[in-house]
């Protein structure tokens, strides 16, 4: 409409730039699609504070990948590894190497929990059993809402708005799995992902998506 008329009057240069920009943005966003995007997870998870180290970790990953894939073609100003390592420490990268299996609560917005009540005792037993019989699992322990809430408070001491808003009943229960070194990390999520009562699974070593582990 009126915008088209404005477009007509614009110099050819602008129209070319607009065209190229639209194409570039459209191609770029199409690298993310509904199948590959990590679904939204229920608000107020204990792992809420993972962001800072996620950022650092992704920056590191990018550098590593960038370096590896770029090879000799181009590598403009890759920051030095040392600086990255100290940044990672500053950002509080957790050494704890565990897999968290989060459980459904009542009215949980997770896709897997839709139309279900909170994970039942029987479901929890099945999940725990499915994990503990796997090779390479050192320990499986259950984290209840109260513990999750305490951990959450500890990690978010600076965020009073957040702490006011969150109640213990908002926290999901979870199983925390610790593996022996060298164990197959993907075996754990694979064993439980389709079990009823599981809302989602986060591996602390590849928190974006355990499938990347």
């Amino acid at each position: 409409m009126s915008q088209d008329r404005v477009l007509e009057e614009r110099p050819r240069r602008d129209r070319m730039v607009e065209y190229r920009l639209r194409q570039a943005l459209s191609d770029a966003v199409n690298t993310v699609n509904a199948e590959t995007v990590r679904p939204l997870t229920e608000p107020r998870r204990p792992s809420h504070s993972r962001t800072p180290w996620l950022v650092a970790a992704s920056v590191l990953m990018i550098t590593v990948l960038g370096g590896a894939l770029h090879g000799s073609t181009q590598s403009p100003d890759a920051p030095e590894t040392e600086a990255f390592m100290s940044n990672l420490q500053l950002a509080g990268v957790r050494a704890t190497d565990q897999i968290a299996i989060f459980l459904c609560k009542d009215d949980d917005p997770f896709i897997r929990c839709r139309g279900q009540k909170a994970a039942s005792e029987v479901e929890k037993q099945r999940i725990q059993h499915a994990v503990s019989r796997l090779a390479g699992v050192r320990s499986v322990h259950f984290e209840d809402q109260a513990t999750a809430y305490l951990n959450f408070r500890k990690k978010n001491t600076g965020d009073s708005d957040l702490l006011r808003a969150v109640k213990p009943s908002d926290m999901p229960e979870s199983f925390r799995v610790i593996l022996e070194p060298g164990a197959d990390r993907r075996a754990v999520p694979q064993a439980v992902e389709d079990l009823p009562g599981v809302s989602n699974i986060v591996d602390s070593t590849c928190p974006h998506d355990w499938r990347e582990c």
Binding site: V29, P43, H208
Partner: peptide
């Protein structure tokens, strides 16, 4: 978020966080 940040993982994380915050408020 991807267009702002350049990588999918951070983009997903930002949206998740925004989701959590707006949910609280």
């Amino acid at each position: 978020a991807l267009l702002m940040l350049g990588d999918q993982a951070s983009a997903e994380d930002v949206v998740q966080e925004a989701f959590e915050r707006t949910h609280a408020g």
